[in-house]
Design a protein around this nucleic acid. Sequence first.
RNA 1: CGAGGUGUAGCGCAGUUUGGUAGCGCGUUUGGUUCGGGACCAAAAGGUCGCAGGUUCAAAUCCUGUCACCUCGACCA
Length: 481
Amino acid sequence: MAKQPKEQEFVQHITPRNVDFSQWYTDVILQTGLVDYAPVRGCMVVKPYGYAIWERIQQEMDARFKATGHENVYMPMLIPESLLLKEAEHVEGFAPEVAWVTQGGTETLQERLAIRPTSETMFCTMYAKWVQSWRDLPMKYNQWCSVMRWEKSTRPFLRTAEFLWQEGHTIHETPEEAQAETLTMLEVYREVSEDILAIPVYCGQKSEKEKFAGARATYSMEAMMQDGKALQSGTTHNFGTNFAEAFGIQYLSREGKLEFVHETSWGTSTRLIGAIIMTHGDERGLRLPPNVAPIQAVVLPIAQHKEGVIEGAKRVADTLAAVGIRVKFDDRDTVSAGWKFNEWELKGVPLRIEVGPRDLAAGQVMAARRDTFEKATLPMEGLADAVRALLDEIQASLFAQAKAFRDERTTVVHNYDELKQAVEGGFALGMWCGDEACEEKVKQELSATSRNMPFDQKPHGDTCCVCGKKADKAMYFAKAY
RNA sequence: CGAGGUGUAGCGCAGUUUGGUAGCGCGUUUGGUUCGGGACCAAAAGGUCGCAGGUUCAAAUCCUGUCACCUCGACCA
């Protein structure tokens, strides 16, 4: 084989993750072609392979949004300053990182326009116009868009100045409905994270200190990365009537009285891609769970210059594609088979299927798993079912590995010493008195933060793991991205 | 945004201390041989040394500024 392909970068070795996790992450995202750095500070270019993963996440999320009664809309990217100023806590929270448009063409604008850091204010403005009666409620809208936050330090997928996300915004008649919506969407996020991305998460409520600017209550799902740090990978908020009061979103109730609506919002972003990388990746690169992988199986003809091999391998690929498996048929003759093995391993394709002359003669194929590197011969007969079963197994195995890692590094702590030790490379679950001073102390001294308060945890005693005072809530603490 | 580090060919790097013709490996192009885990031989092409100023007869090398990336803090999704 004389010629080599353009995709040269794949030759480079990846820094082992246990040596320098940050460098490993950078190596992986660049070498797998997920993203490239943009000529604009803090911005990333999402390349085809990275965008394909995002499209898979979108498909899974969007189907569940529809199934829970939401519709997609699109709001403008520019928000007049006056709108942004209406909810005091909200402005205060976002002001430091808003980018402004001050000029249109050659004219200086009368009122500057914010490039949306989030769209609560825009949705509220429109909802105030659209709602008249209790019969108009609920309104449950979502939008897929990008937002901009002028961040000081950035990393592709984890924190960038502009990022892709979805933001759901809903308004309801009663506090109970709004609360149910907030928790339902958190459950949708958990399901996508665990069932599709194979990322186990801790769901719970944020502390007062950590909640969203303008929210009455914020909930999050927190995933553990392979360096033991927490990644907040989805949030839902119950605003109560905070924004409704600021924006005058009122309706005539069943009793004929003017009432404020109860509002929620919820979001997940391309940060989830960062979570996939840092949860599953290894020394060879990405490991994509089959349910989110743009390519679930790559079919490689082996010794493809020999007669009938390409045709035989193509039939295998077609068989799998016919039952809906996402297959890539790689018959490039410009690189060796060994080259392709390494390239697809780097890109994290869950299953590699080799079809050579000997396999074709024997009526079988060779299947190699990306998660365990195990190889098995599969008979041609009933191949699609066998491949499906293998993909399911890989999906389950990646989740199990991630969960075992997380559970092993989650420590129940009873006092400050245990807390201190636990947040070095993992999560601490302890009782907390609810005092912000304790969070501040942990942040200052241990550079860890409160993550969330689990719903389903029984208290492990009743003394705060930070100050020792009486406590009635459980709280996860961890260093976080 | 604070402290430290890096920026030289598509990629990875040497050269900078002590200023004096721009180097190496991989990749790329062409020809040939190979082909079940990153092939081999031969020839060739490829760089205003991150960017902008300054010092000097002369700057990759010294000075100033600036941008990007990496590490550790602060802030946040």
